[in-house]
Design a protein around this nucleic acid. Structure first.
Lengths: 203, 203
DNA sequence: TGTACATCAGTGAACGCGCGTTCACTGATGTAC
DNA sequence: TGTACATCAGTGAACGCGCGTTCACTGATGTAC
């Protein structure tokens, strides 16, 4: 009994893909996960999605459009991960819990995390990208304040920036191999070192 | 009265350049400063140095070799900058002073700072690169301990990693436009925000 | 001091590559009547 | 319910590009005698 998903999956020679947009995003994600962000190629992405190199243009305009859409999606998932970690407790507890989630996301989704910040490759004025990235920041900010920011309140509070900086820096250093280049070294540092490092963050 | 420097500069048609290695490094630095690390090209670098595209191979082997040499040079300058900032005072004072120098270097030498961490483009086993980068870390580490690390002592202490993370993260966020994308926004953040941010680093 | 010659640091043309995008097209879909 | 047709989402060949590296070579340098 073929459902819609199966029919999409099995019908080999359909002229119209049916769900090409998400398929291209998934293919692009696989490409950068394998080859790194710099190894991205629109042609390779189309190849993996099983369509001609001209097909993506219908959905994303150009290569930058596709990467921007992927980065926006990544920021949405990132925001979800931070939100899920935002529990109860003191401000510093909440910040530290989010810090762990922040680094965990970076290590679990290395290529996506890298892409999120590669603004030279992205269209930062894209509304979806802007919305997704500023939401992620506001979650951190809320934890730092202990409550949502009121309207017209100072946008950047040093405690939030400090928390953001320390986990962002730790994540990048770990990804860049500063804590060891072997398989699993970054994960080990996040597990063993990060909690102690976060002890040095005060509020 | 032509000195050696002038004769190198003015003699147009010499078959042997005389100082091609440093000239190529300078050209490569200019290329990445203008076009970003991803815009680097060996051919363009050779073009700017006024030599054929095959010439760099004699000095650096291949493109990766040239970038690695440039990154090593960058790490050396970076270490010098940190060392110059390492004055007297309490441990936290010394760490904060180095933090300011760290971020200042990153903003002043954006492309070089970016290159230093782009390990996919570099040969991290290169002895010069290894030496220059581990020296830079040891300067931070020394400030965090308040004294040089003894032989066989724990390599990574959380206070040093915390200091490193917070300034590295702040620098990267600033460079990636997180504190504003306009001209000078990163510098303004470093001046106005960073000292307050470093108040949240404890030891 | 002069000469022969090995070594070194260049040349510039050529190779092959994969890329992003354009183009004229075609097949499928969905809507108006 | 059936048909005409506009719109949409694909094709696949082609374009032009700049790249890193290789190759056979050549001109300059420096060293041994």
């Amino acid at each position: 009994m073929a459902n819609d998903l199966n029919s999409v999956k099995t019908a080999q020679r359909r002229y119209h893909h049916g769900a090409l947009r998400p398929a291209l995003l998934a293919a692009a994600e696989a490409v950068i996960a394998e080859r790194g962000v710099d190894g991205f190629s629109l042609r390779e992405t189309a190849r993996r999605a099983g369509v001609s190199p001209a097909a993506p243009a219908h959905h994303f305009g150009d290569a930058r459009g596709l990467l921007t859409a992927l980065a926006a999606e990544a920021f949405r998932q990132f925001g979800d991960a931070l939100e899920a970690a935002d529990g109860a407790g003191s401000r510093i507890d909440r910040l530290r819990a989010q810090g762990l989630a922040y680094v965990r996301f970076a290590l679990d989704e290395r290529a996506k995390f890298d892409l999120m910040w590669r603004y030279l490759l992205l269209d930062r004025d894209d509304p979806e990208y802007r919305a997704a990235s500023s939401r992620a920041y506001s979650i951190l900010d809320r934890a730092a304040r202990g409550r949502p920011a009121g309207p017209g309140e100072q946008a950047e509070i040093p405690a939030a920036i400090a928390a953001w900086s320390i986990v962002h820096g730790f994540a990048r250093l770990a990804l860049d191999g500063a804590f060891g280049e072997e398989e699993g070294a970054a994960e080990r540092a996040a597990r063993d070192l990060l909690p102690q490092v976060l002890e040095h963050l005060s509020v």
